[in-house]
Amino acid sequence: MIAAVIQFFEQHPLLWTFVKAVVLASFTLMIPLAVIWIERKVAGFIQSRLGPLHVGPHGTLQTVADALKLLLKEDIVPDGADKRFFYIAPYIAFISTVLSFMVLPFAPGWVALEMNVAVLFVIGVSLFNVVSILMAGWSSNNKYSLLGGLRAVAQLLSYEIPMVLSVLAVVFYTGSLSLTEIVEYQVKHGWNIWHPPIMIAALIYFICALAEINRTPFDLPEAESELVSGFNTEYSGMRFAFFFASEFANNFFITAFAAALFFGGWDGPILPPIVWTFLKVFVMIFVFMWVRWTPPRLRIDQILRFAWQLLVPVSLVNLLFAIALGVK
């Protein structure tokens, strides 16, 4: 039976691609439901509250209810908005997230598209997110949205550079641009995180990842106390839900990417590989949330100075070390 199914899809590669696309897109939509619920529970835990409790057992249906409600809300488009860009911005954010999930290896062979330049692809595709934020901010025709959008672009672009440099360190060290090969290298030689230059790279990656997904010390694009809600101020209902979903799916992706680069991806004893991937991802997501709910927010000039004056030079020097140590 299974063999027949496999044969069927081998004969129809287009259908198989379609199936993969649908599975990936729905996975990207489902992940935020879990991550947001965990986030609210963790926030409650840190602030000595309980978090969602009454909707479904222990609030597990809370995010489902939220998503449904957002679907049913009125869809407001401001009169002065640039309609075309206003309409498509959330979907571009979402598509960029789905695309980056495409090359992510969950377990041996569990990857939608085996690509030998996967790392490069991910970095390129994740920049679409910046474009969508700028589009949303600009087209809303609202001063808060515009400021939020511009800030987001300044911040994301300056943190993209140390992030790429630290990812490059891994690439030079393992000698491959393919995520699957990087993980296989670690299965053979031990996790990258235990090697000194990569350790520093991982630290830089962690800081930049916080900035990339707008987590608290760096959540300036949507600083509530000054910018109302940042770039998504004018978005309501379903369109806002797409922004929200892509933000949390990105959160998942950026940790999964880190797991593959630094923590050996699916590598681990006893448990099946897929479980290990998810275990590592959720532990890291927990750390991200922990950071989010503890320190206060920085100012935009502090953030940019920190990126350009500290992170970029350190990651450049670190990259040199990684090249020197990693060349075989």
Binding site: L50, G51, V55, K73, S229, N232, S236
Partner: peptide, 22 residues
Amino acid sequence: AASRYDLDRFGMFFRATPRQAD
């Protein structure tokens, strides 16, 4: 909304923009 009574138990939290509030 804070620790002792916790509105988030009922799925209620504060959004800064009216576009996302009910």
